[in-house]
Design a protein around this nucleic acid. Structure first.
Length: 108
DNA sequence: AAGTTGACTTAAA
DNA sequence: ATTTAAGCCAACT
């Protein structure tokens, strides 16, 4: 039995877009959460690649995606400002207070 | 084709 | 709290 499938990037990308579009204002989700939700628990890095290349005209709330420690994206300068503007709280080290702001999609 | 990189994660120190 | 290390895997040299 073959369990070594590789992802269809086109559909993976599309599904990432759908998840990101559904993140409520004031909440964040992690790369790992998205990967797990899509059924690829080891592809958190691929989620990062996809999000780095999101076309601006899609107007997705990419700023609501952070890493598992609540750190914002290195190449996304406005991210912290956008999150603060919608009420996301930060810790003293500059990371999102993920304990209180993580989107718990399982509870929906 | 082999080695490196990265918008990552978990665990350990 | 912060840093290091190992694991991970598609993309890029």
């Amino acid at each position: 039995m073959i369990h070594c499938h590789h992802v269809d990037l086109a559909s993976f990308r599309k599904e990432v877009y759908e998840v990101v579009a559904a993140i409520p204002s004031g909440k964040v989700i992690t790369y790992g959460q998205i990967a797990l939700l899509l059924g690829f628990p080891h592809h958190s890095r691929l989620v990062g690649h996809v999000l780095r290349d999101v076309p601006p005209e899609l107007h997705l709330p990419c700023h609501r995606v952070v890493n598992s420690q609540g750190r914002t994206a290195p190449t996304f300068q406005a991210q912290q400002r956008l999150l603060k503007s919608e009420g996301v709280t930060f810790k003293s080290n500059g990371n999102v207070d993920i304990k209180t702001c993580q989107w718990e999609y399982m509870q929906l």
